[in-house]
């Protein structure tokens, strides 16, 4: 497969996943703020690491500004609108590679997002927009599973999705953990806080099944870091990345893939050997930041191993 093609597959997949994660994150916050007038909208910007960009354009971190920036701003490369646009552009550049149905879905998705009246949206109706994004992303995942041959193209899409997901779960946990450390938190508000964290990665139901309605910070962290079955826990995502890599390389380690193999091994080791107590004792922020910088390194090594960066723009 052409390196340029795998590069497009990779970024198409990451951008769809990113759009979905952002939509869910905002939606959960939006619904939560109806009942509880807490205001920590800046957290959402911190999760995407865009405070500087945001502050250049807006005076304060109010709901409307944050939603506008994260959903529609053309200045924000990670806004939902931009993610969908980029994903569709990548899909278009490889439309002869992906199934026609998948391309048409991506194309319709783009037009739906683009035609949304984002100059005069209202808080009452905006959640429909986020739900639409989440649904379309699910449709994308479903179509990938149902129409793509399980070959290299499929594997690149899958790898990109799980890297994006793992990184997002890590960022959410990192920022939201700060607030749980706030001494002003009382028990009910902490409970609500952790419940919202679970919702932000669509994990509340899976968590309740496993732990029943006993929600503590420690257990939520354990669930989101180590759970072996929940599709957005970092451990699960990492195992998927490892499996994809094994598939791509037919289980062999060649000279060119050695560095990538080693890094994935090291990242897995943390999750195999450490417990949630270890993580909290070590300092969870440090742990997560190490994980995130490993993710960046992972991206670089994938580029290098499969020549994704070799094609000039």
């Amino acid at each position: 497969m052409l390196s340029r093609v795998s590069n497009s597959l990779y970024w198409m997949s990451r951008n769809i996943e990113r759009a979905e994660n952002t939509a869910r994150l905002i939606s959960v916050r939006l619904i939560g703020s109806i009942e509880h007038k807490e205001n920590h909208w800046d957290e959402l910007i911190s999760i995407s690491g865009a405070n500087e960009d945001f502050e250049k354009r807006y005076d304060k971190y109010d709901a409307r500004s944050v939603m506008d920036f994260m959903s529609f701003s053309s200045d924000n490369p990670n806004s939902i609108l931009n993610c969908v646009k980029l994903a569709r552009e990548d899909a278009r550049a490889i439309r002869e590679i992906i199934p026609q149905e998948l391309w048409e879905m991506m194309n319709s998705f783009y037009w739906e997002v683009k035609q949304y009246k984002y100059e005069n949206w209202t808080v009452d109706s905006i959640d429909d927009f986020y739900q639409m994004i989440i649904r379309q992303s699910a449709l994308f995942q479903g179509m990938v599973e149902a129409t793509l041959s399980f070959d290299e193209a499929y594997l690149f899409i899958k790898m990109a999705k799980f890297i994006e997901r793992a990184e997002k779960t890590s960022r959410i946990l990192n920022i939201y953990y700060y607030r749980s450390e706030d001494p002003e938190h009382n028990d009910p508000s902490l409970y609500r806080h952790w419940f919202a964290v679970l919702q932000s990665v669509s994990g509340h139901e899976a968590y309740l099944k496993k732990h029943h309605p006993f929600i503590t910070g420690e257990r939520v962290i354990e669930f989101l870091l180590f759970d072996e079955a929940f599709p957005r826990s970092i451990n699960y995502c990492l195992e998927q990345v490892y499996n994809v890599f094994q598939e791509l390389e037919n289980g062999k380690i060649e000279h060119y893939s050695e560095d990538l193999h080693q890094l994935i091994g090291e990242m897995r080791l943390d999750f195999k050997t450490m417990s949630v107590i270890d993580v909290i004792t070590e300092d969870i922020h440090q742990f997560l930041q190490r994980f995130q910088s490993n993710c960046s390194q992972l991206g670089r090594l994938i580029n290098k191993t499969y020549y994704l960066g070799e094609v000039g723009v």
């Binding site: 497969m1 052409l2 340029r4 020549y307 094609v311």
Partner: peptide
């Protein structure tokens, strides 16, 4: 392919793959 996907070495044309 686009031009940037191809290169010529020793008078032979190649495409850059993964």
């Amino acid at each position: 392919v686009e031009g940037r996907d191809l290169l010529v070495r020793d008078r032979i044309v190649y495409m850059k793959t993964t």
